[in-house]
């Protein structure tokens, strides 16, 4: 079968019909993963006991395959009476899986903040939460914008996994076209190009964010 460019372009609208799903599942998962990862890292720093517990949790999350986690959430939870829409399961799965990695990134970002910053914040009488939100988090983000951005791109590229739990994202659409027409090359190439464009866009956004964060100081 010869590659048919016209067919590749023809498959674009159908694939793009799932663009929104991919985009917002990605955005929600990035937010979820960052938030959860940050909480894991903050919890890990809260006490000696928590540091062991959270170390284990983070390692556990990182050492089990994403697909296993997704299947677990999707097929096993209903046995215990928890039935969630597939896209919720998908966002949860991506959030949990990548929170383990982001927690590690955040750790490096927080380790890079001079201890004097914590001390100055404490000596002003700020509450712990305020120290985290107003002093630690912004400086951490500045330290780690680039590696965090890489994981955001990874999350985008992991959304096709959600096809297996019937989230109507782009790869799923491409597969449907393929199985209807028995032509794989064109829809796969198209979906690949769309992902490429999205990935470049995410990377650019992260770069903008980084520049904004760095504007204040060249330390």
């Amino acid at each position: 079968m010869k590659f048919n460019l016209a067919f590749a372009i023809e498959s674009l609208p159908l694939i793009l019909s799932a663009l929104w799903t991919t985009v917002w599942v990605t955005v929600a998962s990035c937010a979820g993963a960052a938030l959860l990862g940050f909480l894991l890292e903050i919890a890990r720093r809260s006490s000696r006991a928590m540091s062991y517990v959270m170390r284990f949790v983070i390692d556990f999350i990182r050492s089990t395959p994403l697909l296993v986690q997704l299947y677990f959430l999707y097929f096993v939870l209903p046995f215990y009476g928890v039935t969630l829409p597939s896209f919720v399961v998908g966002i949860m799965g991506l959030s949990i899986y990548y929170s383990g990695y982001l927690a590690e990134v955040f750790k490096a970002g927080i380790d890079g903040i001079p201890v004097g910053q914590f001390e100055a914040a404490q000596s002003l009488g700020l509450k712990r939460l305020d120290v985290v939100v107003f002093v630690i988090a912004p400086q951490m983000l500045r330290n780690i914008a680039a590696p965090m951005g890489n994981y955001f791109v990874s999350i985008l590229k992991a959304t096709p996994y959600l096809a297996i739990i019937a989230v109507p994202e782009m790869l799923g659409e491409a597969m449907e076209i393929a199985s209807d027409t028995f032509r794989y090359a064109e829809p796969m190439l198209t979906v690949g190009v769309v992902f490429l464009v999205l990935a470049v866009a995410v990377a650019q956004l992260v770069r903008l964010l980084e520049m904004r964060l760095l504007k204040s100081a060249k330390r």
Binding site: G116, Q117, S123, G125, F134, Q139
Partner: peptide, 26 residues
């Protein structure tokens, strides 16, 4: 109040924000 050898100002905040942060939050 505490003043440190290495100042420990918050680098991501302006001078004014450095001074108002604790007033507002604490």
């Amino acid at each position: 109040g505490m003043v440190f050898q290495h100042f420990n100002l918050f680098p991501h905040l302006t001078v004014l924000q450095n001074c108002t942060l604790a007033l507002r939050r604490a």
